[in-house]
């Protein structure tokens, strides 16, 4: 059984093959990927939304490697105890079901927590604590005494061939885009009372919005100085660092502007996108054994031999991470968000 927190599975590649793959991916400026994609190009995927009539919102995505996921979102009305209008991250509940794993195995728990973090942590920072509607939990408030509780059930339909986080995150994004809640008929602080006509139900997230969208989490790897998106299994195996980067659309452009004015890292991020979290899934040192003296450690012993793969050591450079963030906040994140919106237009 693979280690739950690690994205890399045992690659059936020889040291020479791994070294070849690493060298071609690390070519300065122009990495050559095994399937001929450009570094920011995603594999084709097929998606559909609104597939489960019994849910508030649902989506299915199939990746090119054949892995598929289905997400169903169900909403319930619940009484608010604290009387707050800001919302609580416990109102969103995510469960991830992966064939061959129990619910309480490390991988499903880790994945669901990572996705819940992106969803629930949206407006936890100081700039949006004024009851903003940007985040998901702000949208779930009905009034002072009532709120929606959202159950997001994620089903992976096939064995995880590569690290399933991007698939699950993109499917959840689509499902949330297609989620509708019944139209509220009661006003103010009354007990909630809804219109029973599903036709007039309102979208949880507004359509074609340039200001708000559910978050997405992308898997990004760095090989040498290169940043590579949507890595396949072999690319993950030789990557230096594997990171999960979560972004969403931001309502307030001012904060991004002020950052730019401060000359923050000289980045020119798209002001419409906001970085939510960066998480290291795998550090470069993941393949080196801990607690082994250098003299006896096979990965630190002899000097490099050309053409033979050696596990990486050490960490990842700040400049690489900054570059990664810039790319995600730039055109790549925007392209992915727009592409996914395209799927949900017809529903």
């Amino acid at each position: 059984m693979q280690k739950a927190s690690s994205a890399s599975q045992t690659p059936h590649l020889s040291p020479a093959e791994l070294s070849y793959l690493y060298t071609s991916l690390a070519l300065p400026g122009a990495p050559i990927r095994p399937d001929g994609r450009s570094p920011t190009q995603f594999r084709p995927l097929c998606a559909e939304t609104g597939i489960l009539p019994g849910t508030n919102g649902s989506a299915r995505i199939g990746f090119a490697d054949g892995t598929q996921a289905i997400v169903g979102v169900k909403a319930e009305v619940e009484r608010t105890d604290s009387g707050e209008l800001s919302g609580s991250s416990s109102w969103v509940q995510i469960s991830v079901e992966i064939p061959g794993f129990r619910d309480d195995d490390a991988l499903p728990v880790f994945l669901s927590e990572m996705m819940r973090e992106a969803l629930g942590g949206v407006d936890s920072d100081t700039e949006t604590d004024t009851g903003s509607e940007t985040g998901l939990k702000g949208r779930l408030v009905i009034n002072r005494r009532w709120h929606w509780r959202l159950y997001i059930d994620v089903l992976l339909l096939s064995q995880p061939l590569s690290y399933p986080l991007p698939l699950l995150s993109l499917t959840t994004h689509l499902a949330l885009l297609s989620t509708k809640l019944p139209k509220l008929k009661s006003q103010g602080e009354e007990d909630p009372f809804f219109d029973d006509d599903w036709e007039v139900a309102q979208n949880l997230y507004p359509r074609h919005s340039t200001t708000v969208a559910p978050p997405i989490t992308l898997l990004v790897v760095s090989v040498g100085e290169n940043i590579i998106f949507d890595p396949n299994r072999e690319e993950i195996a030789v990557a230096d660092a594997v990171m999960a980067v979560s972004v969403t659309r931001s309502e307030k452009n001012s904060s991004a502007k002020s950052n730019a004015e401060e000359g923050n890292l000289a980045l020119k991020p798209n002001p419409k996108l906001k970085l939510l979290s960066i998480r290291t899934i795998d550090p470069p040192s993941r393949l080196t054994q801990p607690g082994v003296p250098d003299a006896e450690n096979a990965t630190t012993g002899d000097e490099e031999v050309a053409g033979v793969w050696r596990p990486r050591r050490g960490g990842v450079k700040r400049a690489v991470v900054a570059n990664m963030v810039q790319l995600v906040l730039g055109e790549v994140g925007e392209e992915v968000l727009q592409g996914l919106e395209g799927f949900s237009v017809h529903t």
Partner: peptide
């Protein structure tokens, strides 16, 4: 066999 959480009327 896995019965999804959203399969029935009430979760």
């Amino acid at each position: 066999v896995n019965i999804a959480g959203f399969a029935s009327v009430d979760r």
